[in-house]
């Protein structure tokens, strides 16, 4: 029972029949279905941004402060400089998802790396890596990313990196705990006795088996990265050269009392994305047959 079926399936993703099994299990749950639909819609927006709005979404094309629904050409209205909010939302989907996914990837790489090494080798390596993890866990993560962005100056790359580099400690601990469980399993012991290299054992035998919690964590990481980006933008640390939902919320915060929609429309987009990712995470969690997910 070293390879519970659902895990392999999502690991290699080649077997078509079992993959549908996972999908079927997801679709059986209404909340997961909701998440899936929402996520599909957001992805569609990202893909359709260029075909639908070929021009630069930063262009000032309309009169400033067109409220939504007053001009058919600009269904979501325009912001304080007369930029089309609908174009911003579509193009922003690309950037916000990009920030979310890349930040999550950064966290995943660091978190899995440290967690796996720590759990597999134990001893001094474990102790050292866990001190490092504690170190990162004690510094308030948002404040830490704030400091990094302020120091390196806000741009898409620094914002993404700063969010990613502060979000991994929880994941590292999770992976370490799972790896510890597997470290002394028959399969791993057998591989060792067969002379397999450590790297091979970790990559081929251990990690695929801890994929379930990782997949679930990944969806949450993407969601919280999108939220963090908007918080940074609210404090004035956004990248003014690209449109992201967080940046749009940040730009609209000054007029939130007079023109609520400028910050609220991208805010709703963020809410939808975070919601979708969490619903998906929950759904995956259940579908991957785990009883509960501790964070």
């Amino acid at each position: 029972m070293a390879f519970p079926d659902s895990l392999i399936l999502s690991a290699d993703g080649t077997g078509s029949h079992p993959r549908f099994a996972l999908l079927r299990r997801l679709l059986r749950r209404p909340s997961a279905l909701c998440g899936l639909v929402l996520m599909a819609a957001i992805l569609a927006m990202a893909v359709l941004a260029h075909p639908l709005y070929p021009d630069d979404p930063l262009d000032m094309v309309a009169a400033p402060f067109l409220h939504p629904g007053t001009d058919a050409a600009f269904p979501l209205g325009s912001d304080m400089l007369g930029r089309d909010l609908a174009a911003g939302i579509f193009h922003g989907a690309r950037i916000s998802l990009l920030i979310g996914v890349v930040a999550a990837l950064v966290s995943l790489v660091i978190g899995i790396g440290i967690g796996a090494l720590s759990g597999y080798y134990g001893g001094r390596i474990d102790a050292g890596l866990m001190r490092l993890t504690e170190l990162f866990q004690t510094i308030p993560p948002f404040l830490f990313s704030l400091a990094i962005v302020a120091i390196l100056q806000p741009s898409i790359a620094t914002i993404t990196g700063a969010i990613g580099i502060t979000a991994w400690p929880g994941l590292a601990r999770l992976v370490r705990a799972e790896v510890l469980k597997l470290r002394h399993s028959e399969l791993v012991e057998a591989s060792i006795s067969l002379g397999a290299s450590d790297a091979r054992i970790i990559l081929l035998h251990i990690l695929p088996n801890v994929l379930a919690p990782i997949v679930v964590s990944a969806s949450i990481l993407v969601a919280s990265a999108i939220l963090s980006e908007s918080s940074l933008a609210f404090l004035g640390l956004g990248d003014p050269n690209v449109v992201s939902w967080g940046g749009m919320v940040g730009a609209g915060r000054e007029v939130i009392r007079t023109d609520w929609y400028v910050a609220t429309i991208p805010g709703i987009a963020i809410l939808a994305a975070v919601l979708a990712l969490n619903l998906l995470g929950d759904g995956l969690n259940d579908a991957l047959n785990r009883k509960g997910q501790r964070r």
Binding site: S230, S231, I256, A263, T264, I270, L271, V274, N278, L279
Partner: peptide
Amino acid sequence: LLFYATPVFWVGV
């Protein structure tokens, strides 16, 4: 889930 997904500062304002 809704509370979790809504930006904190937006709720505040």
